[in-house]
Design a protein around this nucleic acid. Structure first.
Length: 416
DNA sequence: TGTCCACTGGAAGGGAGGGCTT
DNA sequence: AAGCCCTCCCTTCCAGTGGACA
């Protein structure tokens, strides 16, 4: 008989030394490797804040996993430490970090900044209901109550501008003209070098006083980062020869993304641990890579809104029918059938075209605009996820119960 | 060279939903 | 309760378009 089902697992020796969180992207190490140059550049600009002056606005560019966010957060910690040891008038440096992927509306950003300066819970700016102008006025009033320097970091600022325009940035970059006691400067962090083209020229010139670029890590740098974290995470001798180099090489080859390299190592370790093995080898890394890729897809598909699920399912069914290059019209026909069967409301083709674009942006399908001459100009849509697994995930949605086993009429593929 | 297809992609606007103010 | 405001999701409308074909 079993004494306790957990006992056996507990007796497995963990290959993690202590907290495995040091391998998670949210962990900010004491020392950021290979980012000295960028850190120094930004610090040399931000130091004005500690003298009570307004630092120049900064735009930080770099692909995902190049350490932009980690650097921004690290600098936030450091500047607070430095400010704490200063005498009174210079002590009040506020460093506000906002991730625009989470807070992506004008109202949201202003509300978020404003509430940093409102201690009384009852006076806080509500999540919705006020006019944006009112939020701005309160924010401005509260910031200016005492002398201080405020640094606002807008991470993923490109998403914010793309979604909500640049009005807020215009106001925030102009706010210093109205402030009498306080000063505010902005740090924008973006993956996209070209997003400034979407900005009003006045905002662009104000926002990009200073530009700093974070290049992708190369394989050697990634390896250093992995070694640094692995020393904290694992006992000696647990990582097989070449594992770290393989993780680094895989990611350097694809994106130079440290976040993904660390994930790869962590998942490889978890796979080894689950198999009750005492060493992480290259095999685990390869398994980890496949697992991560599949998990990403499954999670993305699972959390899709209902209508997008129907569109995706329509594309998958077309693929299943042997139509490997579907057009928007084909997908819409399939979608109509599915929507009818499932009893959901029917969207217009215009809207479905947008949903297809979204699926493309998420990497679930690949949709290229292509002209077929007299055959018209449309998107050519290819599936880029594993068919069976994805279908299985979609069919788990209770709302899609009625379309289980739905078959497409094959006429759309007859012209082949 | 012009035509024409099957959309694309931008713009404007409606209406539901959530929440505040008076 | 009535009147606002903002956001999200969606529709309607329409000018624009790449390239095969006549």
């Amino acid at each position: 008989m079993q004494e306790n089902i957990f006992k056996e697992f507990l007796e497995n020796k963990s290959i993690f030394k202590r907290d495995r969180d040091v391998l998670r992207p949210s962990y900010i190490p004491e020392k950021l490797l290979h980012r000295d140059e960028q850190i120094n550049q930004i610090a040399s600009i931000l130091v004005s804040a500690l003298r009570g002056d307004q630092p120049s606005n900064i735009l930080v560019f770099g692909k995902t996993g190049t350490g932009k966010t980690a650097t921004a957060k690290y600098l936030g910690k450091e500047i607070k430490k430095a400010a704490d040891s200063l005498p009174e008038p210079f002590k009040d440096v506020r460093y506000i970090y906002i991730n625009c992927e989470v807070v992506d509306t004008q109202y949201g950003v202003l509300q978020n900044i404003g509430n940093h300066f409102i201690e009384d819970f009852d006076e806080r700016i509500p999540p919705t209901g006020w006019s944006t102008e009112r939020v701005y006025n309160i924010l401005w009033e509260k910031i200016d109550q005492t002398p201080k320097v405020v640094v606002v970091v807008l991470d993923e600022i490109d998403r914010f501008v793309y979604k909500s325009g640049d009005d807020t940035l215009y106001h925030l970059t102009k706010i210093n003209d109205d402030l009498k006691n306080a000063k505010l400067s902005l740090i924008g962090i973006s993956n996209d070098l070209k997003f400034t083209e979407m900005l009003d020229p006045r905002v662009r010139s104000r926002l990009s006083d200073e530009k700093i670029v974070f290049p992708p890590y190369d394989a050697d740098q990634l390896k250093d980062i992995l070694v640094q974290r692995a020393e904290m995470a694992f006992e000696k001798g647990i990582i097989g020869d070449g594992v770290m180099a393989l993780c680094a090489a895989v990611e350097a080859h694809e994106h130079g993304d440290a976040r993904r390299a660390l994930d790869l190592l962590r998942v490889a370790a978890e796979i080894a641990e689950r198999n009750n093995e005492t060493e992480i080898n290259e095999n685990h890394v390869i398994k980890a890579k496949n697992k991560i890729e599949l998990d990403c897809v499954i999670e993305a598909v699972r959390t899709l809104p209902l209508q997008s699920k129907l569109v995706l399912l329509g594309i998958l069914l077309g693929e299943e029918n042997g139509n490997h290059k579907q057009m928007t019209g084909d997908v819409y026909t399939a979608y109509k059938g599915l929507a009818k069967k499932s009893g959901t409301s029917l969207l217009t083709q215009r809207r479905v075209a947008d949903l297809i674009s979204e699926l493309d942006m998420m990497g679930l399908v690949s949709a290229r605009v292509k002209s077929f001459g007299r055959g018209g100009r449309t998107r050519e849509i290819l599936v880029s996820v594993p068919l069976l697994e994805t279908k299985r995930v979609l069919e788990k949605d209770p709302m899609l119960e009625p379309v289980k086993g739905f078959k497409l009429k094959t006429q759309s593929t007859l012209e082949l």
